[in-house]
Design a protein around this nucleic acid. Structure first.
Lengths: 187, 187
DNA sequence: ATAACTTTTTACCAAATGGTAAATGCTTCT
DNA sequence: AGAAGCATTTACCATTTGGTAAAAAGTTAT
């Protein structure tokens, strides 16, 4: 069965008819490493599920530095948090990705047809947000070494798949500091 | 009109009958500076609206340090992000507070009776989460001085109402550093 | 294989932040 | 007013992190 359905079923029940409707409403796209799923300033109203690959969400701060806000890997569902407003961040594939997308009008139809749709999906989005919040939050109060170790725990299969500069930008340290930290740890 | 209703009406429409039902479902409580609304390990299934005052949400990290995760002031609605699980954080009043609470069974009734209730309230919770995430997130990539200045912008009327130690713990710096920063800024 | 290019590491020094401890300032209670 | 208790500031030094630049390692194209 489609991974997306398996994922949703973790959060609520659906009957066969409902599942069929969902499957007929989704489309699958592939994007390549370094391509953008969306760029800041553009509308983004699809809902996206990551079947395979890793995306990063980043923005530029006042000094023009890239700030990686979070990584999203397999089995994550996300959408524009400010619905109907243009995105303020860049969403980039950092590995080749297979994504499932649901267009706004299909989403609307699912919402109208499947009684529990909104309840289930809201649960998923809220859980995702709380998790992102907690991960990001814990970075504030830790030193750089601890942050890197935590990153390795939370994203165990990312460190060898993506450039270190992205990790440094996620952790809020310079690439040089991260390199030094990696050296210290390996000793 | 009750502040709570005014707040909700920003996010969706309600008729007089619905408003009356809501008003009959809420209760108001007062808690004093330094008292706890909830402590870690206890259940917390009420939904709470802050009518007056400031709460802080904090936890202890591995080293036993208090980490203030965020401040919640007037006109904020919040609930346990992990519904039905015991809270992992402490919620403390840092000024005298007037709070509105809705008990789980009343919430359920509102949800069953008012068609748009879940949609409106989910919108509010998601917006709140995204905002907290963004605030917390921006702390990671900034130096301590910038973080403090941002704090002053985001919470303009907090700095004189609460102990600096809480602010330091929110910003992820020691109290001594914060004191030094405040001195530099004032010069 | 070589050259060109990008990523990562290293080095050096400056700046920022932390840790310990003491001094000062501010409240509260009697 | 004075004492006790807490909050905040200051000082000193150690440690961590940043900034600039160069070297080394890894990748890609020809």
């Amino acid at each position: 069965m489609e991974e997306f359905i398996t994922y949703i079923l973790q959060f609520g029940d659906l009957n066969k008819q409902q599942i069929a409707l969902i499957l007929s409403s989704i489309s699958e796209i592939e994007i390549h490493k370094d391509d953008y799923l969306v760029e800041a300033g553009k509308p983004f109203n699809e809902v996206v599920f990551i079947k395979e690959g890793v995306l990063r969400i980043y923005y530029y701060n006042r000094d023009g530095e890239e700030i990686t806000k979070y990584f999203a890997d397999e089995n994550h569902l996300f959408k524009n948090p400010y619905a109907n407003e243009p995105l303020t961040e860049y969403i980039q594939a950092i590995t080749d990705c297979k994504l499932i997308t649901i267009a706004p009008k299909d989403w609307q139809e699912l919402s109208n047809t499947i009684i529990s749709w909104d309840a289930i999906l809201n649960k998923i989005f809220q859980k995702g947000l709380v998790e992102k919040m907690d991960r990001r939050s814990s970075l504030v109060s830790e030193n750089a070494t601890t942050r890197y170790l935590t990153f390795l725990e939370k994203f165990p299969n990312l460190v060898n798949r993506i450039p270190l500069s992205y990790i440094a930008s996620y952790l809020g340290v310079t690439q040089q500091s991260l390199s030094r930290i990696r050296k210290n740890i390996s000793e």
